[in-house]
Design a protein around this nucleic acid. Structure first.
Lengths: 195, 195
DNA sequence: AGAGCTCTTTACCAAGTGGTAAAAGAGAGG
DNA sequence: CCTCTCTTTTACCACTTGGTAAAGAGCTCT
């Protein structure tokens, strides 16, 4: 495995789990048993490193989610497929979801950069929502606002560990499945057409 | 206005809007035209300052929300009252909501400290949800998980400016009202009893 | 006037920050 | 063997960080 790949991995972990500003190049290099200047040689600057991390992570995220929707058993709805994929990511690649949260905190220009890669996903999602509304299978409303609501809910329930604990939710593998199930019901109910 | 109050205000702003780690005592003091050591005199350390900020903010938050629920016109549901109060806060005291987000990022022991003050609110909310379920006015499910879902959705739609923009939502005063309305519909739909 | 108090300032400091400059390894081709 | 290129390291640097020590400043009470 090349050095620059190892750096990219470690940086994704650190930025996603601990935060960009909370991660120093020295600490990062120390973890890899490499000198800080090696990091700077490969990525030019800390910002350059984050750029590389964001670009790669956005790709992985996009791949994971579209793959989940495409290969989901036909019985599974798209919403359910995305929720399941997100929970799988929260378990296996928490740094990726953490990175999304971190980017939305850092604001421009990082969000912009990430959104560029994820744009196709957003487009696909809104188009799906609109098609469902058109077909009468979903409550009619502003698809983009709906998307933000769904996004917030899913990210919250899947990744806001501190909040969950604060609200008295037990956090184990078993309860994760329970959480996921309840979330799917919640979303279906939220999206259901008016009676 | 006493110096320590001015410091507390500025620190709440800075921590809530820019983040704890992103705010240096020097920068904070500079804004107030005071020396850093004045800040340290009043609060002992940066952590001490955050403690004071958290305690006061939790009180204010708790007051604002319970007042909103208590004094809401009877026609307004509790959910609606909380959503309206949150949007009002997002507009007038964005630093308070920002601080909540920041704390959930910083994790223990800060979350614990905040939750202690907010515990009565959480209790009240879960009890409300359970009473509504009992009365058949809400879909039956784990009240704490439900609370996390609602919390995440409301905070997301009310405060995740970058995400909203990224998803193509226009952000003006007019659209804020629209957002609020759609959110209330979303929540009512999500919480409605199964048909 | 002086003592004692609270509050604020000046003067430092050790540790850590991202980053530059340049030297040293290491492998490949001539 | 020499040199060229890619990679990594050593050596620095200016600046910022949170924090300590101590000196003033302003006030009230005796």
């Amino acid at each position: 495995m090349s050095t620059s790949d190892r750096i990219l991995d470690a940086a994704t972990d650190a930025f996603g789990l601990r935060g960009y500003n909370a991660t120093s190049l020295d600490a990062l290099a120390r973890d890899l048993d490499v000198r800080k200047q090696t990091v700077l040689y490969h990525f030019g600057s800390k910002d350059g490193l984050l750029e590389a991390v964001v670009d790669r992570a956005a790709g992985e995220l996009s791949d994971a989610l579209s793959e989940a929707v495409d290969n989901a058993p036909p019985a599974l709805g798209n919403v359910e497929a995305v929720v399941r994929a997100t929970f799988r990511l929260a378990l296996r690649r928490p740094e990726l979801l953490g990175l999304v949260r971190e980017l939305s905190r850092l604001g421009d220009p990082w969000v912009g950069r990430a959104v560029e890669s994820l744009e196709p996903m957003v487009k696909r999602a809104t188009e799906f929502l609109e098609a469902e509304m058109e077909a009468g299978r979903m409550r009619r409303s502003d698809s983009r606002l709906l998307l933000v609501s769904v996004y917030s809910t899913v990210m919250g329930v899947a990744t806001e560990v501190e909040i969950l604990r604060a609200f008295g939710v037990e956090l184990t593998l078993r309860t994760a499945a329970r959480r996921r199930k309840e979330l799917i019901v919640f979303l279906h109910s939220a999206l259901a057409p008016a009676e």
